[in-house]
């Protein structure tokens, strides 16, 4: 279990990257306030997923607009899947369980 910082570090509807044990993890704060965590690197050509646009379901990589399901990490556009990590907000702190 790791504390990544305050949930306020991520603006509503955006993502930010955190380095955890040498892994880069993109954490997104959805507009309903919930959070999701995915591997930060787009499997297509290494794009930074945290810079992508999101909705309640998907993140769209900013480089070539391929998309991934925020909950499962499955590609919605025929690419490889990305890893998902359990993440939650506790007392305004972002807690990553890995």
């Amino acid at each position: 279990m790791r504390t990544l910082g305050s949930v306020g570090d991520i603006p509503l509807g955006e993502g930010r990257t955190f380095a955890v044990d040498g892994e880069m993890i993109a954490v997104f704060r959805l507009r309903d306030g919930s959070v999701r965590a995915l591997s930060a690197v787009c499997p297509h050509q290494g794009g930074p997923l945290a810079d992508g646009q999101i909705d309640m379901k998907q993140v769209v990589c900013p480089l070539h607009l391929y998309s991934w399901d925020l909950a499962t990490g499955c590609s919605l556009s025929g690419q490889e899947a990305v890893s998902v990590y359990p993440v939650r907000v506790d007392n305004d702190q972002l807690i990553l369980e890995m």
Binding site: P11, T17, M24, G46, P48, L49
Partner: peptide, 10 residues
């Protein structure tokens, strides 16, 4: 917050 923080993978 973090507008210009890196999102670059390692």
């Amino acid at each position: 917050p973090g507008q210009f923080r890196t999102s670059l993978p390692l």
